[in-house]
Design a protein around this nucleic acid. Structure first.
Lengths: 219, 219
DNA sequence: GTTTGTTAGTTTCATATTACCACTAACAAA
DNA sequence: TTTGTTAGTGGTAATATGAAACTAACAAAC
């Protein structure tokens, strides 16, 4: 049986840079749309990919050098008009990394674009980006997701600012800090202190067994 | 380019029957697993389906006779081991209907099985069912989703009981009723009253422009 | 040393929200 | 008229929240 469906994955890779939520775009090497900015993506290879998650991991590794960032399936986009080559289906993923892991490389020439000012993209990639940004915002209101945009160790103030950047609202410091202990997804790192010209701050990390904690109320 | 990937859709169709959450299963007409109970599903037809949602609608219509129930994409399952025919990808959907729309038919021989006691299913269909049940429960805590398991007109007590059945917890009547008006997704139907051997109850319906309302706090 | 600036982190308290339970309302049937 | 049953509302103590003031700990300036 011949279905004639092009099956691929696309990844929306988020990071926080200069206080803005940004995504990774790269110039397509091949037609269609060669030379244009687009999401990292590629065909699913039935012979070497265990499943579509493995395809997304492979795409991320090949195109950005990332090994195992937070990566989650977003939505599947499909239809006859989204790709000029024919009826296609793309399993979209989104990923979160701290900026420092996005090392510029002569080989891998990716660009960071603010989510608020993404250029026109080929295929239905703008729709995918919008969908991913909405998911990130929605899910950040009631989960520990924003932790994955931070470095391994971070202060509570940095975490609060990350929530604020994603959600676009100011949070109350006192309320934020009262909630954290009972949500129980962070651990203070002994002797790890962020210094500055002011009172030093305790550093925390995500508990290794808690990649994603779901709250029963919004932050 | 030949990818050799089997692309299909599967649908988890929920209904509330005898106070239990149940799903529709049907006996497969073809191999593999002919004669076994499985989820309604089928190939995506690139020539006639606009997108995978249209495929899911077609499958629902052909296998259950349903026209336009609440239908939403769930997750995409893929890999080389889930289908004996080879590397496959299935876009799973879930749907909600009131029991009365599931009319038994000599042609369409589907069965209702309680979510709590689903038999062993072929492919990874048990995993899909678990995923769908979790989504339904999670999403019901903070949206108007459960309305779609009710008939067009229903009482507030029936709505509360629907939430309670899905969530598995008892809700406070007074709190429940105080919240509803400000969430603003219901409308009282004038002169529509449910009678009984007791005080009659006002009937409500989902506002036509509000298929799914997302709450900012859990019910 | 002492002061100043800055950010970390806690406490206070008035107000808003919630959980719990009691109450009243309206019908049918006895 | 009474009883049973479910519909629908109100009151209150406990809890959570939001806003702000407060204390803590450092570096740098003086």
């Amino acid at each position: 049986m011949e279905q004639n469906i092009i099956v691929s994955v696309d990844v929306v890779l988020f990071t926080l840079s200069e206080g803005q939520l940004k995504i990774v775009l790269l110039r397509r090497e091949r037609d269609p749309y060669a030379g244009q900015l687009a999401l990292p993506g590629g065909y699913i290879h039935a012979d070497k990919d265990r499943d579509s998650l493995a395809s997304a991991e492979r795409v991320l590794l090949n195109k950005t050098g990332l090994v195992s960032p937070y990566l989650e399936q977003l939505y599947t986009f499909s239809g006859g008009v989204r790709d000029p080559r024919g009826w296609s289906l793309s399993v979209a993923y989104y990923a979160l990394v701290h900026e420092s892991l996005l090392v510029p490389d002569a080989e891998l020439r990716f660009e960071l674009w603010p989510v608020a000012a993404v250029p026109d993209l080929p295929f239905d990639h703008n729709r995918i980006v919008d969908h991913a940004a909405k998911r990130l915002r929605d899910k950040s209101t009631y989960t520990s997701l924003p932790c994955h945009l931070l470095p391994e160790l971070f202060t509570l103030t940095e975490l609060q600012q990350t929530y604020e950047h994603i959600l676009g609202v100011a949070l109350d410091k006192s309320v934020f800090r009262r909630k954290l202990p009972e949500l129980d997804f962070l651990e203070a790192v002994p002797d790890a202190i962020r210094q500055g010209k002011h009172r030093p701050a305790q550093l925390y990390r995500l508990r290794p067994d808690r990649r994603l904690t779901i709250f029963d109320k919004p932050v």
